[in-house]
Amino acid sequence: MSTETAKKEIDHEDFDPKGTLALILLYFVILAILWIFMYFIEFLGNDLTVIG
């Protein structure tokens, strides 16, 4: 007994991984915020900073 599944060929551009894009953008935003926090607040705000 065989089942017949409908197959549809799609082109490279026809599939947009929207979820993956959203996830990557979210990671990107998190990374950017963490970097700003780490560098400008934790590091530069952590006086005494070596200046010479």
Binding site: N46, D47, T49
Partner: peptide, 22 residues
């Protein structure tokens, strides 16, 4: 200097030099 970015290794024979503002 605890809790700050002023932090050096101190090696015999070497002079660790850094400038900070208080």
């Amino acid at each position: 200097v605890v809790g700050t970015n002023a932090n050096v290794m101190v090696v015999p024979g070497e002079v660790s030099t850094f400038t900070v503002e208080f």
